[in-house]
């Protein structure tokens, strides 16, 4: 079951790459913010349908949940916007490296302290090695 979750995450990343390449084309014709909006808008429709047919959870929990826990959507928008703004200044390569490093270091800090309701798991040698290897890979790709 654990293996399976790793495969899901790998798949998620591959979807993101295809998406990015295709949206780059779409962005040229309709604009980048508009492309992001299209993505979120269509995503809402797709997930709305999935929820109607397969939703087993409790959507109404969103109303009683602590407010910080429903900020996911806004954060996604901040992420997209930061990329759209910085690519013209520093290029795609440096933008991606900076995003990924920010993401990796922050994930480690979040888990170490168990912030934002995540399960608290301490940083260990292996995790630091993993992040260093990722940074090496990024340098080699660029």
């Amino acid at each position: 079951m654990r293996y399976f979750a790793y495969i899901l995450a790998l798949l998620a990343g591959s979807a993101l790459s295809f998406e990015g390449a295709i949206y780059a084309e779409l962005g040229k014709t309709i604009g980048q913010l508009e492309t992001s909006f299209y993505n979120f808008f269509m995503g809402s429709i797709i997930m709305g349908l999935l929820w109607l047919f397969f939703g087993k959870g409790k959507l109404s929990y969103a109303v009683e949940a602590p407010k910080w826990s429903i900020l996911g959507g806004v954060l996604g928008v901040v992420y997209l916007t930061s990329i759209v703004i910085s690519v013209p200044f520093v290029g795609v390569g440096i933008t991606m490296v900076a995003v990924i490093i920010g993401q990796l270091v922050m994930s480690m800090v979040i888990e170490h302290y168990g912030w934002l309701g995540s399960k608290k798991t301490r940083i260990n040698k292996e995790k630091i090695f993993a992040v260093i290897s990722m940074i090496m890979a990024l340098i080699l790709i660029n």
């Binding site: 959870g57 409790k58 901040v78 916007t81 930061s82 933008t95 920010g102 979040i110």
Partner: peptide, 25 residues
């Protein structure tokens, strides 16, 4: 842009937390 990466990892943890009570979909 580093901030962009930070928000993305914050998003995945926040969503993970919410999904435990509200569901994945």
């Amino acid at each position: 842009t580093l901030l962009g990466g930070i928000t993305l990892s914050a998003q995945s943890s926040i969503n993970g937390t919410l999904s435990r009570k509200a569901g994945t979909i």
